[in-house]
Every structure is written in structure tokens, then in C-alpha cells.
Amino acid sequence: MGTIITFKRPDGKEASGYLANAARGNAPGVVVIQEWWGLQDQIKGMCDRFALAGFDALAPDLYRGVVVPYHDTEAANQQMTSLDFIDATTQSVRGAVQYLARNGARVGLTGFCMGGAVTIIGAAKIPELTAGVVFYGIPPEQAAKPGDVRIPLQAHFANKDDWCTPQTVDAWEKAMKAAGKPLELFRYDADHGFANEQRMAVHDREAAELAWGRATEYFKKHLG
């Protein structure tokens, strides 16, 4: 449905990503951020789904062509830890946001796992954003303090998550509320990665569809 495009980062360098356009010409935008596996077909499929829901959706390729097989957690961790999160967010992700906003459209940001953490960093550091939806990812506080978040956020977390643990989520929620930031937070009796239908070991269709419905309604409310 979509296509690979190139777009400019704020520093003038080129980045690439997967773009899926909505049927209508004046659609709002959603930038979709990958898991630590890279720009997998599942992430491209999320862009296609956003397009069908009425949004122009763009997933920037933060690993520059590297896609890690789902079984290789060691390689995925190596790719993620070698990523400059601040550069990726303030340059590649912001460039994607600016691309979708070029005709005056409102733009939201969403991401999964690693991409959830990037979404929160973007919520603090990308001025062109209107709203964000986080899926089971929280960055270290030195990357993005709750008090620095500039946009309303919705967040989806898993109660059986051993990476983004319930305790971590509770602490982040408390800090967001203490900072007076608008946050809708949902918890699901599921595993980390529950929205990824390509990973049958963790996918939870009921939780995934519930979260998807909430996310798209949230974006429609804030982006138009």
C-alpha cells in the first residue's frame, strides 16, 4: 500500500522511511516509530492501517536499512544501544513530522517498545507535534523528563512486561501527574510487545485491538 520515500532532516541530511497516504488529500499525519527490530513489515503494516483510518502515516527508518530477525534479541539490542536517540528523535523523527506537517496538517507521534521511548522524547523535543501515543516504552529521565513533555499523551502498557515493568510505569505516571501533564494511561493483562501480530508468542489480539481503537480515537480527537 505504501512506498519508501526520502525526506530532509532539520540538519539538511536525508533520511528514508515508509509512507502510507490516506485516501483524502488533507489528512492529518502520524509518525510511527519502530521497535528495536528495525523497520519490520509489521511497522509498515501499522502505517497502512493508519492510512485506512484516515491518516497519512510515515515510519522513519532509524536503523538505515538494517532489519533484525525477531529471534535475534542480541542483534536487536546491539542496534538499539548503538542508536543516538537524541539525534534520531530531533533529526530523523522531527524531519518525518515536518514532512507530514508541510501542508499545515496536525501531526501525532506513536511508537512501540523502543519507539515508545522515542515517542516520549519526541513529546519533549519536537515542537511541531500535537499529540502522542506511547506503546510500552519509557526513556531514561535524562533523555526526557516528564516536566519537559509539551503535548497530550496516551499510553499503553502491559502488566506482564519485564522490560517496561509495572513499577516503572507507575513511577512515570506519578511523575507525569506531578508535573501536571495531560496523560491517558491504559494497562493490559498481556506481555511486552502485545500489539505485534507477527510475534505470536506475545501477541494478544484482544488487547491489541482495544489499544488500537483507543489510539485512533485519541488521534482523531487531537489531530482532526
Rank of each mutant, 00 (worst) to 15 (best):
L62K: 01
K125Q: 12
Q79W: 09
I121T: 11
T73C: 08
D72T: 11
A143V: 02
A59M: 08
V67N: 00
Y136P: 03
V66Q: 10
A117W: 05
G132D: 05
P140N: 08
H71S: 10
A144T: 03
E141H: 08
V68H: 09
A123N: 11
L109S: 05
T89D: 05
P127F: 04
A76Y: 04
R64G: 06
T110W: 11
G122S: 01
L62M: 09
C113F: 07
F85P: 02
R106K: 15
V118F: 04
T119K: 12
Q98M: 14
A101K: 02
N77Y: 14
I121L: 14
A123W: 01
Y99F: 15
D61N: 08
Y136T: 05
P127N: 06
R94H: 12
P139A: 08
D61I: 04
H71P: 06
P139R: 00
F112E: 05
F112Y: 14
L100A: 06
F135P: 00
Y70G: 01
A131W: 04
N103K: 14
G108W: 00
A123V: 03
V68K: 06
E74N: 09
R106F: 02
T119N: 07
N77F: 14
A123G: 15
T119A: 12
P139I: 05
D84K: 09
G111V: 11
D72W: 07
T81P: 04
A117N: 05
V134S: 07
F112C: 10
A105T: 04
G137H: 09
Q79P: 03
P139H: 04
S82H: 10
Q98N: 13
C113I: 02
F112M: 10
Q91N: 15
A144S: 12
M114Q: 08
A144K: 10
E128I: 07
M114G: 09
T89V: 15
V133E: 02
R94F: 01
A124S: 14
E128S: 01
K145D: 05
F135K: 03
V133K: 02
Q142W: 11
